[in-house]
Simulated assay, not measured.
Amino acid sequence: MTAAIYPIIVKDIQGKDVVMEDFKDKVILIVNTASKCGFTPQYKGLEALYQQYKDRGLVILGFPCNQFGKQEQGNEDEISQFCELNFGVTFPLFSKIDVNGANSHPLYQHLKKSAKGLLASESIKWNFTKFLVDKQGNVIERYSPTTKPEDLNVIIEKLLS
């Protein structure tokens, strides 16, 4: 049986289709991001995590979202340049999406059903909510925006081994 995450198609920051199956056999950290948020400095921690573990099979996927305080108003080129120039981001970034509401991307519909938030809520509360997916494509855990990327080292180590 194929994990439900793998057939989902997303668009990268250049607008090209990417099938989540491309990340099969990798540990995946999926994050909804924004450039003008109090949590934006987490880009630095996410990049450090990516550099530390990418050769062992971790991939971090950033999904810009403008649904929280309109903190991601730029277009894809502006977002990409901002992340690269300010935080040296080299992990994959994707086209801007909605994570909540009627236009919620199918990837986020799946993530939210698989790992509910506080009080069993499905909705994403803010930017930099994180979902950890194992090598088989199973959603393992959901982390709040206040969870720092470096706080995930232990669980990532476990999933990579």
Rank of each mutant, 00 (worst) to 15 (best):
K148D: 14
G15Q: 00
K158V: 15
K36C: 02
D77I: 04
F39R: 01
V31I: 07
F87H: 14
N75D: 11
E78S: 12
I156F: 14
G57Y: 10
S144K: 15
E21G: 00
D12Y: 01
I140S: 11
D98T: 04
Q71R: 07
L93C: 04
S104F: 02
I124S: 02
W126E: 04
K125N: 10
H110Y: 14
F82Y: 03
N103V: 01
N100W: 09
I156G: 14
Y143M: 07
N86P: 06
V18K: 05
D98M: 13
N103Q: 09
I140W: 14
K96Y: 01
G15S: 00
I79H: 07
K116R: 15
S121R: 15
T129G: 03
V154P: 12
D134L: 07
Q67K: 10
K24G: 02
E157P: 10
T2Q: 11
D17Q: 10
L152N: 07
A34N: 00
D55L: 06
Q71V: 11
G38S: 03
E157A: 09
V139I: 07
S95W: 03
I79F: 13
T146L: 13
N100H: 05
A3F: 09
G101T: 06
I28C: 07
A34H: 00
C65Y: 00
M1Y: 06
Q71K: 09
E122P: 07
N103A: 03
K158M: 12
V10G: 00
S144T: 05
F68A: 09
I28N: 04
